[in-house]
Design a protein around this nucleic acid. Structure first.
Lengths: 230, 230
DNA sequence: TCAAAAGTGTTGTGTGTACACCCATGT
DNA sequence: ACATGGGTGTACACACAACACTTTTGA
């Protein structure tokens, strides 16, 4: 880090947030339609410039709040993209984040004057602006991988959920069926769920028990080996 | 990504490279002593500004080459650090990389007029400039974790190596002893090593067989589960 | 009584782990 | 012959994977 500041024109720095949720059995990602060139009319990952007094994470949280009105959601830095011509206007380096949110808790600010925001199934994305397809793929890969050795799956559900709902989240993201008994056995022996006394009635069948995630138990488990390996 | 460029002063963007190697049984990291304020005289991770026409990775490779004269080494983006006051002069966002190199293949440009560069054991680091201690810890965590599910351990060895040398790399980084028979059994059943006919004589004992890493076999293995779990 | 999802155990197979002795070499 | 690190196999524990039937509910 030499004192060469003058020699180097400074790039613009943005944060982009790949926001996932699960709606009716599909993994969805939030996109915003661009109103201005370049890529006018194309869909893009929400993002914006990093303010002079905020950290990168603060900038990402601010963007997230602007789009969804929620705070306290899961947010993780993903990767930084800086190809010289990824934005045709000027040099823009973007620090990408990915975020998980429970669909019940969020009301997307859609379709007001300034913006057109929609959830898209990750299987059926429209053409994206800039290198946003690459960013989105990177986020999806991270999500799939991280599901195997962390607790992030719970972030897509409300505080109380049934075991079948949790299993669906895993199946949707991993893209394959999981054996019900093995799934439940694994979770109970991980000792990270607290069953509450409530039941949930949903349809003409036996009511399902509701559970909540117990953070502290999870984080104190020994770190060696895989946690979920379905 | 709105058109608000004017409102936001652009930060400087740098890349920093945490460069690891193994020398005589110790995991080492390359540091450079700062000749100028701030933090004059403190040791720092090598890095520098991102040029206007180069990608982030190109900038990291350039820095790496400037420090070590080598190319073709393992390099991976680590994390981006952007706390508003991490550099007291001005806003600097740094994209950190980490890199692994075989000590035999590198000749550090040490102690010429402009720079004072040294390998430090990760166990005995000096006080570091900026937030470089945090960056270095982040890199070390990543290295330890990634050792378990990837092939990066081989990057710290020359092309031909003995199984004991490979085991030492794992023991040094993980910080614990590994059973010799289990280590060798695991590697042979992974089928990623080719034994060559050469032997290495080193000291007054039976000569050791030399092996080389076979990339293609490794990369085609099924990705589920852990690969190394010593 | 029927449909629909909830809930529950056992067995075989593979992988991790612990452990001790002989081999090849130079002095 | 001896000191030094190289090289090899077996037995137990545990985790993953496959698999089918009973329960509870509302209509």
């Amino acid at each position: 880090m030499n004192q060469k500041n003058k020699k180097y024109p400074r790039p613009a720095v943005t944060v982009d947030v790949v926001l996932f949720t699960v709606i009716r059995g599909h993994l969805k990602v939030l996109l915003i339609r661009r109103k201005n060139p370049p890529f006018r009319g194309r869909w893009a990952i929400p993002g914006g410039f990093v303010g002079p007094r905020e950290s990168l994470e603060e900038a990402a949280l601010r963007e997230l709040k602007e789009e969804t009105n929620v705070s306290g959601v899961y947010l993780e830095q993903l990767y930084t993209f800086g190809a010289p011509n990824r934005d045709p206007r000027t040099r823009v380096i973007t620090v990408a984040y990915f975020s998980l949110i429970c669909a019940n808790l969020v009301q997307v600010r859609a379709s007001d004057d300034a913006r057109d925001a929609r959830w898209f199934s990750v299987r059926r994305l429209p053409r994206l602006a800039f290198d946003h397809l690459e960013i989105q793929r990177c986020a999806l890969d991270r999500l799939k991988n991280k599901l195997g050795y962390s607790n992030i799956g719970f972030q897509l559900l409300p505080e109380k959920f049934t075991l079948t709902e949790l299993q669906r989240v895993y199946e949707i993201i991993l893209g394959r069926k999981i054996d019900k008994r093995n799934f439940r056995k694994k979770l109970t022996q991980l000792d990270i769920l607290r069953g509450c006394s409530e039941r949930r009635m949903a349809g003409v069948h036996r009511p399902a028990r509701l559970y909540s995630f117990v953070q502290q138990k999870f984080s104190t488990r020994k770190g060696k080996g895989i946690l979920f390996s379905f």
